[in-house]
Design a protein around this nucleic acid. Structure first.
Length: 104
DNA sequence: TTACTGACCTTTT
DNA sequence: AAAAAGGCCAGTA
């Protein structure tokens, strides 16, 4: 029942404050598996549908959205803009400014 | 039921 | 230094 990984990742995503973003690796590392970043993204898909998680607050390590334009890229970008996240010319986000640090 | 894919990251060659 | 392969878990077919 206590799913160590998925449950923990979901909790971390739910704990992301407004106007902040987190990377897959960061969540995976905080969840206990630095190499399970893939599943973090995958969990987002199912969890976001069921638990309504802020999947738009989760991006890749490059500070850039991984979603294709026809899948939800515009949607995530729009949501992030709503939160106050600024995008560069190449839709590049400043991780230094917006990346949420789970650990101090 | 088993097998394969999947919004990635890390490490090694 | 860059490039390539590996690794993890869950969901879907």
């Amino acid at each position: 029942m206590d799913n160590s990984f998925s449950n923990r990742v979901k909790t971390l995503i739910k704990g992301i404050p407004y106007g902040k973003i987190a990377t897959y690796g960061q969540l995976a590392t905080s969840a206990g598996n630095p190499r399970a970043a893939r599943q973090v993204a995958w969990l987002l898909h199912s969890s976001s549908k069921k638990d309504n998680l802020p999947w738009h607050r989760v991006i890749n390590s490059r500070g850039y959205i991984s979603l294709p334009r026809f899948k939800g890229y515009e949607l995530q970008k729009q949501l992030l803009l709503e939160e106050g996240i600024e995008f560069g010319e190449n839709d590049f986000i400043d991780l230094k400014k917006y990346q949420w640090r789970t650990l101090k």
